[in-house]
Design a binder for these strands. Structure first.
Length: 843
RNA sequence: GCGGGUGUGGCGGAAUGGUAGACGCCGGGGACUUAAAAUCCCCUGAGCCUUGCUCGUGCGGGUUCGAGUCCCGCCACCCGCACCA
């Protein structure tokens, strides 16, 4: 597939020439510039902007190709389309590069952006580059600082001393969301707990709204909505106080007040004040608490962790029965959730069951399938629905009735009240890093925390920094942080923490839509574009990025800066690009080879270097360690942008993984050439009604498939139409079909489409043409094939005029030889006729 | 453990309860060519007693004239969460 022939011929499409030519033509025509003043209906198509790591990954190519098809299609349909691109440019890798290679994070980042931008340009994406920005541009992060100060003024930003997740390798604080199985999401190092003063965003103020809003995001994947719902973690229940035998009171929280008569013990977290108090005079208790703290926090350790408890000897008085329940310190109770203390109901909670079994505590049943089964023993905790039993005044009630009754009674006693508890915590945004947005605050010994005055924004990063020692270079910088207090004029210091980079990506879609110099955005201009009509990206952002972006949007709406509540009307999460792996046992270990080191034939594969066989392994996500990566530049060089784009859209549904294969891309390359040859035809006269129908059905189907993001189906339709055109005899219909085909493939193969459009003598750019109109009369066939079944099994088919009455269809079906043979003389009992589709004869 | 998803030829996958396997890849056969590449045509779920018949959408049941599709019960794999009271 080497392109020795540099010129375009009727027989051969040359992407090396065509791609650059049309990319230049689009640039010169500013074909994809979004005009906020346009009178057309608007459409905002957005793909998650990339982190400038150095090179575009094939996953980016898939993501951006999907968005591009949609954006181009929308434009053909008369929309003013906003399809922007930029760079999520702050973050750790730039600092790592600075530490490893001695380069400046800014220089490293900008060089990466330049390279990746050139890579994206080669793929011919219909992007409005005039709106490009990087989040590390002082203009961008300066506006971010202004927004942060506005949220502060509105009481949505606060500072508190708190125990934080400290990553000892990256030497920074992590949000709860960035701790995975007790390890840092980037470094993988076990996270430590430290006390630090941190900046927080009050996302919990919006917990209810964020949860409720999910219900209206019906163009989001259910999976993502569910993940966010679980993350927000709303639960409703009862908080009430037990009187303790030592004269104190103990607040507990439960979601199952209906099971209160089944409570047989009370448990507190090891760091609960009650536990701490006991430990003061009891060294055995202190030792137990210490042991609990040493327990691991990884998933595996938690799963196997035994339920352990320490009996404090204190009794808790049951509010209804007056019974004294033992109070335990228990390792499975969390201080961070609820009140850090629980009423334990072993009969109906699996953890309590396990604990009670171990310590020989009673396990009464208080919920049963029916009143008759009140005495049935419990073999395991039953958390389901049922009727309340063995519970005094609750007996016979449903779970829901009993919950209401218990809450009402304890509220009446002034002992407790109904309460909603959330799993969601406030978002800690302080990072002890250099390469991020400086948090615009000043610490003054006299005035305390002072916001940087707006006229002094942006607070820019100093250029002269040193990365030879770990930690925050801003902290060590000789002059940067020393400043006069804007309040009292005395000596003060700047905040040296920078913002979590997820803040940068929480409002970039607003800045794309509107970018005045003096403000973050213009409210009226935003109203023209927002919400994003279609957002496309990876499932890995289902919680963090998407929840934060939703929060920022709501917070900005709350303070009146914008008029939208939800930033992304529709969300699509695309699958990964995968590739088979090649390996060989060598010196007792598995050695991996890249696709370019291997010769792949039908059944097997050999290593180019020595001709020996290699094992073809599983098709998995592309990764450096397995060496199963393909480089976008290399494949664009070989096959051109259109074949690569076509591959990205073919075969696999876009939400599933797409296995890359050499054979597959070669097939796409052949199709590009096959299409090209089709455009070499002589005009002819005469109609071809069958081809007309095929064409219009294809236009209609491709449009619906693109709108549903079912690109693989659109691709299949285009293959079918191409075959039909190839087989058709020359006619005016055929000529029209070929012209229309150029438009149908324009969103997917824009370069070939432009070249063909020009070759056919059509005016202007196909990218700016109008999507072909469908003639509804041509969507229906005048002949249909009807299936004829006997006892539900296919025996024959009939080709008849569409709309043939059922009685006639039935007669034709019964007259069929094949039907009669199959019936073999049996009496017909019933005939089901579905006009234009099928006849089923039941004998 | 809880929650969610997926399961269809050698592979990626089509299929408003109505002809299972569209379309692509791989493979096979043929045409063209001195030859190869490219291109074009045909075949390609399995089996059999091959005008045709039987079986076939993870497994077992069910509803229906008719089930890949709906219902019940399993199995396998993938993803998310993780002692959240």
């Amino acid at each position: 597939m080497v392109h020795e022939v540099p010129t375009m011929t009727a027989e051969r499409f040359d992407p090396a020439a065509a791609d650059a030519k049309w990319q230049r033509a689009w640039d010169e025509a500013q074909a994809f510039r979004a005009d906020s003043a346009s009178a057309r209906p608007t459409s905002y198509v957005l793909e998650m902007f990339p982190y400038p790591s150095g090179r575009i990954h094939i996953g980016h190519v898939r993501n951006y190709t999907m968005g591009d098809v949609l954006a181009r299609y929308k434009k053909l349909n008369g929309f003013e389309v906003l399809h922007p691109m930029g760079w999520d440019a702050f973050g750790m890798p730039a600092e790592n590069a600075a530490m490893e290679k001695g380069v400046h994070p800014g220089g490293w980042t900008r060089a990466n952006i330049d390279h990746m931008k050139a890579q994206l340009k080669r793929l011919g994406f219909a992007l409005d580059w005039s709106r490009e920005f990087a989040t590390c541009d002082p203009e961008y992060y300066g506006h971010e600082q202004a927004l942060f100060l506005k949220l502060y003024a509105a009481g949505l930003v606060y500072r508190k001393e708190s125990e934080v997740n400290w990553d000892p390798v990256d030497m920074t604080v992590l949000a709860n969301e960035q701790v995975i199985d007790g390890k840092g999401w980037r470094s993988g190092a076990p996270v430590e707990r430290r006390k630090l003063s941190q900046w927080f965003l009050k996302i919990t103020d919006f917990a209810d709204e964020l949860l409720e809003g999910l219900g209206r995001l019906d163009a989001w994947p259910d999976k993502v909505r569910l993940m966010q719902e679980n993350w927000i973690g709303k639960s409703t229940g009862l908080q009430f106080a037990f009187d303790l035998s030592n004269g104190e009171r103990l607040e507990v929280y439960t979601t199952r007040p209906d099971t209160i008569f089944g409570a047989t013990f009370v448990a507190v977290a090891p760091d609960h004040p009650v536990a701490q108090a006991v430990a003061l005079n009891n060294c055995e208790a202190a030792r137990f608490i210490d042991a609990c703290k040493r327990g691991g926090t990884t998933a595996a350790e938690l799963e196997t962790a035994e339920k352990l408890g320490f009996d404090t000897g204190i009794g808790a008085v049951h509010p209804f029965t007056g019974a004294h329940l033992p109070v335990y310190i228990a390792n499975f109770v969390l201080m961070e959730y609820g009140t850090g203390a629980i009423m334990a109901v072993p009969g109906h909670d699996s953890r309590d069951f396990e604990f009670a079994t171990k310590y020989g505590l009673p396990i009464p049943r208080v919920v049963a399938a029916s009143l008759e089964e009140a005495a049935e023993p419990l073999a395991e905790a039953e958390a389901g629905e049922g009727v309340i039993v063995n519970s005094d005044f609750l007996d016979g009630m449903s779970v829901e009735e009993a919950k209401r009754e218990v809450i009402a009674r304890l509220e009446g006693q002034g002992r407790g009240q109904g309460r909603t508890v959330w799993r969601l915590r406030d978002w800690g945004v302080s990072r002890q890093r250099y390469w991020g947005t400086p948090i615009p605050f000043i610490h003054c010994a006299a005035c305390g925390i002072v916001p940087v005055p707006e006229r002094e924004l942006p607070v820019t990063l100093p250029e002269d920094v040193d990365f030879r020692t770990p930690g925050n270079p801003l902290e060590r910088h000789p002059t940067w942080k020393h400043i006069e207090c804007p309040g009292c004029g005395g000596p003060a210091t700047r905040e040296t923490d920078t913002l979590d980079t997820f803040v940068d990506s929480s409002w970039y879609f607003l800045r794309f839509a509107s970018q005045p110099a003096d403000r973050p955005f213009d409210k009226d201009e935003l109203a023209k574009w927002l919400p994003v009509e279609q957002y496309i990206g990876g499932i890995e952002h289902a919680i963090l990025h998407l929840l934060y972006a939703r929060f920022w949007t709501r917070a900005l709406q709350h303070i009146g800066l914008i008029d939208v509540a939800e930033p992304f009307a529709a969300l699509f999460t695309q699958g990964m690009v995968t590739h088979e792996t090649y390996s060989r046992e060598q010196g007792g270990r598995e050695v991996w080879f890249g696709p370019d080191e291997v010769e792949r034939s039908g059944a097997g594969a050999t290593l180019k270097a020595d001709g020996g066989p290699v094992t073809i392994g599983k098709v998995v996500k592309m990764s450096k360690s397995k060496k199963n990566v393909v480089d976008p530049d290399a494949i664009v060089d070989r096959f051109g942008a259109d074949a690569v784009r076509w591959f990205m859209l073919s075969d696999s549904p876009p939400e599933r993984d797409l296995p890359w294969s050499e054979a597959g891309i070669e097939g796409c390359w052949r199709f590009v050439q096959r299409l090209w040859r089709l455009f070499d035809f002589a005009d002819a006269a005469g109609a071809d009604p069958a081809l007309d129908r095929k064409l219009h059905r294809t236009i209609d189907a491709v449009a619906r498939d693109i709108e549903a993001l079912a690109f693989n189906k659109a691709v299949a339709r285009i293959y079918e139409l191409t075959s039909a055109i190839e087989k058709a005899a020359p006619s005016a219909s055929r000529a029209a079909a070929i012209r229309t085909l150029a438009q149908l493939v324009a969103p997917m193969m824009p370069h070939l489409a432009e070249e063909a459009w020009a070759r056919l003598g059509q005016p202007g750019l196909v990218a700016q043409s109008a999507w072909p109109a469908v003639d509804p009369a041509l969507l229906v066939e005048d002949e249909v094939t009807v299936a004829v079944q006997v006892r539900g099994k296919l025996r024959d088919t009939l080709t008849v005029a569409r709309g043939l009455p059922g009685t006639e269809l039935e007669a034709l079906a019964l007259a069929s030889d094949k039907v009669q043979r199959s019936l073999d003389g049996a009496a017909v009992r019933k005939v089901i006729v579905v006009p234009d589709r099928l006849v089923n004869i039941v004998a």
